[in-house]
Amino acid sequence: MPSYSELTAVVGFRSTNAAYKLVTQLVDHGWLEKDTAGKLLPGPRFHAVPVLGTVTAGFPSPAEEELADTMSLDEYLITNKEATYILKVNGESMIGAGILPGDMLLVERGAEARDGDIVIAQVDREWTMKFFRKRGRRVFLEAANQDFKPIYPTEELQIAAVVRAVIRKYT
């Protein structure tokens, strides 16, 4: 780092006092630092380039930068974090849609069901998982299993949640 008089000459100031003021500004903004003896050192902003990762044998590691555009499995499976619940499947009513007893579901509560969605509805104080079907103004629930009859609601259909993902973990 230059001394005050060297700096005065470089910048073309008339007095070292002007250089001193400039340095004070640069220190305030983090470009320079003073050590205990008052000597100037490069400040934290001097090298303020993003550090992307440690470099080993002279070749830059692009890993960190590339990973910025990846997401976790959580982020991939869950859109609305606050409204997502899990549940375990017991019945076989959706076997034709590939959902088996013991599977785990990620469901979104309060989401609006569209025709063809798999939903968790509340029927006779039980959870039931079915396809949500909409024919004109009429809605009904349909299983993916011929042993189950479609459910035509007599009162308002209570849809608790829409199924967003099925997880089957093998241990």
Partner: peptide, 23 residues
């Protein structure tokens, strides 16, 4: 008591669960 595969009594998924049978 209603543990998912891989869960233990000490550590469970941090997502609330719907309880009861799902048919």
């Amino acid at each position: 008591l209603e543990l998912l595969p891989g869960e233990t009594t000490r550590k469970r998924l941090g997502i609330p669960m719907f309880m009861g049978e799902v048919h």
